[in-house]
Write a protein that binds this DNA or RNA. Structure first.
Lengths: 204, 204
DNA sequence: ATATTTATGTTGACGGCGTCAATTTTACTG
DNA sequence: CAGTAAAATTGACGCCGTCAACATAAATAT
């Protein structure tokens, strides 16, 4: 009857694929990107070092799956933040999303790195591609709501917004910002300039 | 007489430390971050795999040195770009530096990654720290020239500018921008909003 | 000049990694 | 109840970074 997650273990393990993903997320949370290892994922899942092969052809496929989950989780948090924005205007929603974006990245630094850093491997799986694309669409729509969807440069303006929040997130995660400059206040101040910057450009 | 680089080889190798750094840069240029290996650096320098130990206690120290060179090179290019700016105003210089920043990162993606990505290792050497700090100071001064050095939020505004260019650079390097959005024109358009954004905030 | 000390490199080993091939165990299916 | 296919184990391979022991060559001291 039951196939994947229930208490019954239909196969040898019963849900190794899912267990590997969860183990990987735990490892990232506990020890950061450098402690992530395929063999350690297997250990935590209680299987031998070669067992993952049946569910993920290479370690990059597992990383891609974890990255996809990260995009999905972030998308949920951004949507919630937009709905909970103090001002329900398009601007208010965009600013709330921007703040939530940086908050997600700094709260889950290793997962965020797994989402964005190609280490090289372009083993982008369909799931990863879809999740990343959905997150991009979410951002693009929020920008379009601010500047008007008919604007021919909506994509370019979305890229601007994306670069700003991703830049802050990356710099904070890598510790490359002088102390005191990665705070919510500083970021909120920078985000405040975003609507004007988005609107003021590209109409030329 | 001659000690370090000349044709004479006073020691066993004569300049292994420098040769390792250069080999590392070559590897990054040719094969990207994932092909960088301490043993491969040693191979290219023509020494055994353990020889680097005498010059760099760990591979992270070598990475830090290469990262430091990257910061120094970038700083030179930014200064040259500012001096060659079409408009010699503070704004013109800042915009030229921003464009040069993204250009450097995309032209040397692996070196840029080595400069910024901590892989974890906080083996920051004095040289690395000094070079990174100098680059930050350069940016801060350019921002101060635009908005006025007496502004109490110069650092925070510099962080804003830093995040924007670093965000673009990172997204492009990691291939996370939809095709066509990493072009010079799009970036120039975003940079154009920077002076107004920097000035318009934080005076409150 | 010779001896000693120090710096530099080599060799070989260690454990950990990702991947693969061969094999065994378990579940599904006709 | 077969027979097949899926899932997992074992053991090996070649890499990697690091270390300890040893060898060599340069600098220094006597």
């Amino acid at each position: 009857m039951d196939r994947a997650p229930p208490n019954k273990k239909p196969y040898h393990h019963g849900g190794l694929r899912e267990a590997l993903v969860q183990a990987g997320i735990d490892i990232l949370t506990e020890g950061g990107l450098s402690s992530f290892t395929l063999r350690e994922c297997a250990r935590r899942a209680g299987v031998s070092h070669a067992a993952p092969k049946n569910h993920f052809p290479t370690v990059e496929h597992l990383k891609a799956e974890i990255g996809a989950r990260g995009f999905e989780q972030m998308q949920r948090e951004l949507a919630a933040a937009a709905d909970a924005a103090p001002s329900p205007s398009a601007e208010g929603r965009l600013l709330a999303m921007g703040a939530a974006y940086v908050r997600f990245a700094t709260a889950n630094p290793a997962a965020y790195q797994m989402m964005f850093r190609d280490q090289d491997s372009f083993e982008r799986t369909p799931h990863y591609s879809a999740a990343a694309e959905a997150a991009w669409t979410q951002l693009e729509e929020a920008v379009a709501a601010v500047i008007g969807a008919e604007r021919p440069d909506v994509e370019a303006r979305a890229a601007h917004a994306f670069a700003l929040v991703h830049g802050f997130a990356s710099l904070i995660i890598d510790g490359r910002l002088p102390p005191g400059l990665g705070t919510d206040a500083v970021i909120a101040q920078s985000l405040a300039s975003l609507p004007a910057a988005l609107r003021g450009l590209g109409t030329a």
